Simulated scan of single mutants.
Amino acid sequence: MEPTKFFARRKFLKFTLLGVGGTMAAAAGGVGYLTLTNHFRSRYGALLVLDGHLADVVHALAEACVPTVAGFPTIEEAQVVTRLDEELFFVSDSISGDLKAALYLLEMLPMTYGHFSRLSRLSLTERREFLIRASGTKDDTVRAVIANLAGMMRWYYYGHPSTWNAIGYDGPYMSMPEKRSEQRVLYAKLVGKSAD
């Protein structure tokens, strides 16, 4: 065997192993980056669909879409994350999968706009500025994701009775107490909460 061919093969194997190892390290780093400490997850207790990271994304998005001034409840008080988790538990896998994909897209989108951080790690002011700026894009998919997810956050926020005084809503006309559906009772049981 000629020495030059032997070294060429060794060099090829070395660079191949380095390339494969580097790719694996980058993939592991990407997964680690997505699953870094969850800022908000611990506030919600058991969730059945929104894993730790998605709970952070939903909380951060909801916070950026609704008022954060005196007199308005917080995202936790309005139960936005837990209510969305409850709804997603009862829809088909394809619907919940599409919603998760949209949330992950929105989470990573700030990096394409010059931020060195994900949506859930931006400050509240930065999140709001980013959402306004990204809403003006010509990309229909991005506009649809932002508009629909923001609308969903507002739907769950303002649908909670804790927000009604702040917006001057007296509540349902008949003022009858809410009757929980079997689905809501089952969800409460599964996450270990009272169905009241």
Rank of each mutant, 00 (worst) to 15 (best):
E178W: 11
V81S: 06
D140V: 10
Y187A: 04
D51A: 11
K138M: 11
V81P: 00
L17H: 09
L54R: 09
Y44D: 01
D93F: 06
A150F: 06
R180C: 00
M111E: 11
S96G: 04
T16R: 14
K11I: 13
F12R: 14
E63R: 15
R154S: 06
H115A: 12
A46M: 12
A8Q: 12
R128D: 06
F7D: 05
K189P: 01
A64P: 00
A27I: 15
D140F: 09
D93C: 06
F7L: 15
L13I: 13
S42F: 13
L103Y: 02
R83Q: 14
G151Y: 04
K100P: 01
H59Q: 12
D196M: 12
S96M: 05
S123W: 01
E126I: 00
R133H: 11
N38T: 07
Y169G: 03
Q183M: 01
R127L: 04
L119D: 00
M108Q: 05
F12E: 14
T112V: 05
S123C: 03
Y113I: 09
E178G: 03
Q183T: 00
V91R: 10
K138Q: 15
L17D: 06
K11E: 12
L54Q: 07
F40Y: 15
H53N: 13
G19D: 07
L48R: 14
T23C: 12
V57T: 09
Y157L: 08
G71L: 08
T35V: 09
L106G: 04
G29D: 09
I75S: 05
G136A: 09
G32K: 08
S120M: 07
M153A: 15
R154P: 01
G97M: 07
G159R: 06
A28M: 09
L124R: 09
G19I: 10
